[in-house]
Simulated assay, not measured.
Amino acid sequence: MEDARRWLAERDVVEAREGWVDAEEPDRPLTANEVAHSWAGEVLTDECLDVAERVRLAFGLLDLLDDYWVTCEIRLADRGSQGPLPAKLLWDGYRRRLEADRDAEAVIYSLWVDWFEDRNTSATAFAEVLGNDIDHIVAEESDGPLRRAGRVLACSGPVPWPVKQQAYDTALRLPVLHGPLFEGLLASYHDLYGDLEPTAALALLGRLRLPADTPHLAKLRSVLATGHKNHYGSPHAWDDTARGPTD
């Protein structure tokens, strides 16, 4: 983060009480989003840095600004003509921020709408942030990795069911992950790009230890039992189910 702050300062962009300012327009405060749009792409094309330095600096900029647009530029750099970025650096950057005990909204949103919704990247992204080490996470039960697992499961709706099913089944062994698993199942049904197999999802749902009054639990169970795979494929099915006490 400090390296990113220095890099911006070298370009006369510094923090101020109202946010950020550019020396060329010192009387006009800048938002973090404006700084991200102006400079995140520049970080990733800075010819004074090698590619590893660019990636590390970009993630430092993400920590500093906490703005989703930085993740967009990281993805564009990876998927663009100069990519791919070094996979270890890229996915270590995501994993570390998913494990951190601080807000991770930008990173989670990036996974959901960019990496997971894209069928060209969803399998690799899911494997890198969870699938490859879910067995170790469940066995070790360490705070950071469990935090990462919960965040990934909750936003994994768009990941194809065959890609995520084994991780779901493994996560089922830890009750602390049952809440995020339910969120993942719910998103798998409701997300425009959500994916699930109704029979397998219903069986998994039946093994989750959840409060009986969990919002939407009864409705999700009902639509899965009748074989529906996605809300947008059967838009009336959800409302046609019998209403539970909190639905």
Score class of each variant (00 low, 15 high):
residue 79 R to P: 02
residue 58 A to F: 01
residue 227 G to W: 04
residue 175 P to Y: 07
residue 158 P to T: 10
residue 30 L to Y: 13
residue 52 A to M: 11
residue 230 N to P: 03
residue 14 V to M: 09
residue 50 D to T: 00
residue 188 S to M: 10
residue 196 L to R: 12
residue 188 S to W: 10
residue 109 Y to H: 13
residue 69 W to V: 09
residue 244 G to T: 00
residue 108 I to G: 07
residue 245 P to H: 05
residue 80 G to I: 01
residue 88 K to M: 06
residue 15 E to C: 07
residue 104 A to S: 14
residue 92 D to W: 11
residue 169 D to Q: 15
residue 227 G to C: 12
residue 81 S to R: 11
residue 3 D to I: 04
residue 144 G to N: 07
residue 186 L to A: 13
residue 82 Q to R: 08
residue 92 D to R: 15
residue 39 W to I: 02
residue 190 H to Y: 05
residue 152 V to S: 04
residue 149 A to E: 12
residue 23 A to I: 04
residue 102 R to H: 13
residue 219 K to C: 06
residue 195 D to W: 12
residue 7 W to M: 09
residue 98 L to A: 03
residue 143 D to T: 15
residue 68 Y to D: 04
residue 106 A to Y: 01
residue 49 L to G: 10
residue 109 Y to G: 14
residue 170 T to C: 08
residue 174 L to R: 09
residue 88 K to C: 02
residue 173 R to F: 05
residue 140 E to A: 15
residue 198 P to Q: 12
residue 226 T to L: 04
residue 106 A to E: 14
residue 102 R to D: 14
residue 180 P to D: 12
residue 190 H to M: 05
residue 71 T to S: 04
residue 168 Y to N: 04
residue 226 T to N: 02
residue 64 L to E: 03
residue 117 E to Q: 15
residue 246 T to E: 08
residue 131 G to V: 11
residue 113 V to M: 09
residue 220 L to I: 10
residue 159 V to S: 03
residue 8 L to A: 08
residue 24 E to M: 00
residue 75 R to I: 05
residue 128 E to L: 10
residue 177 L to N: 09
residue 180 P to K: 04
residue 5 R to W: 07
residue 162 P to G: 06
residue 159 V to G: 00
residue 70 V to I: 06
residue 143 D to K: 15
residue 212 A to D: 14
residue 162 P to M: 00
residue 146 L to E: 07
residue 170 T to E: 02
residue 239 D to V: 02
residue 53 E to K: 11
residue 140 E to W: 04
residue 73 E to L: 00
residue 53 E to V: 06
residue 115 W to F: 10
residue 168 Y to G: 03
residue 64 L to G: 06
residue 30 L to E: 04
residue 227 G to L: 09
residue 20 W to F: 13
residue 183 E to Q: 06
residue 89 L to V: 07
residue 132 N to L: 14
residue 114 D to Q: 04
residue 110 S to C: 14
residue 98 L to D: 02
residue 176 V to T: 15
